[in-house]
Amino acid sequence: MNENSETQKLLHKFILNQCNLEESNEVVDYYRKNKLTTDFPTVEDIKILVDEIPEMDEATADKIFSKILISAKETESTAIETKKFPMFKYISVAASIIVLLSIGWSYQHGFFKQKNDLIINSNDITLQLANGDVQIISAGNKSQVTDSEGNIVANHNGNKIAYDTETPLEKLVYNTIKIPYGKRFELELSDGTIVHLNSGTTLKYPVRFIAGENRQVFLDGEAFFDVTKDKKHPFIVNADNLNIRVLGTHFNVSSYPEDNLTDVVLVEGSVGLYTANEKFDANKNTVLKPGYKGSFNKKDNHIETKPVITYVYTSWMEGRLTFKNMTFNDITKKLERRYNVTIVNQNKKLANEKFYASFGDEPIEKVLSYFNDVHGINYTIKNNEILIK
Results as ranks from 00 to 15, higher is better:
M1G: 14
T7F: 13
L10T: 09
L11R: 06
E26M: 15
V27R: 01
V28G: 07
R32W: 02
R32P: 11
T38P: 03
D39Q: 03
V43R: 08
D45H: 01
D51W: 03
P54D: 02
E58W: 07
I70F: 09
A72R: 15
A79Y: 11
T82G: 07
K83E: 05
K83F: 04
P86G: 13
K89P: 00
A94D: 05
I97P: 01
V99D: 05
L100H: 14
L100W: 07
L101Q: 11
L118D: 10
D124H: 15
T126F: 01
Q128D: 11
I137M: 02
K142M: 06
S143I: 04
N155C: 11
N159V: 12
N159K: 10
K160H: 03
P168D: 13
L169V: 07
L172P: 13
N175W: 03
K183T: 07
L187M: 05
S199L: 10
T201G: 12
T202D: 12
K204D: 13
V207G: 04
F209E: 00
N214E: 12
N214Q: 09
L219W: 00
T228E: 05
K232S: 11
N241V: 10
N241M: 13
L247K: 13
N252G: 11
D263S: 14
V267D: 11
V271E: 01
G272N: 04
L273T: 01
L273K: 04
A276H: 01
N277H: 09
A282F: 05
A282Q: 09
F296C: 06
F296V: 04
N297G: 05
K299P: 04
N301T: 12
I303D: 07
K324Q: 08
M326Y: 00
D330E: 12
I331W: 00
R337G: 11
T342E: 05
K348Q: 14
K349S: 09
N352G: 13
N352D: 14
A357L: 06
S358D: 10
K366P: 04
K366E: 05
K366I: 05
N372Y: 10
K382D: 15
I386Q: 01
L387Y: 05
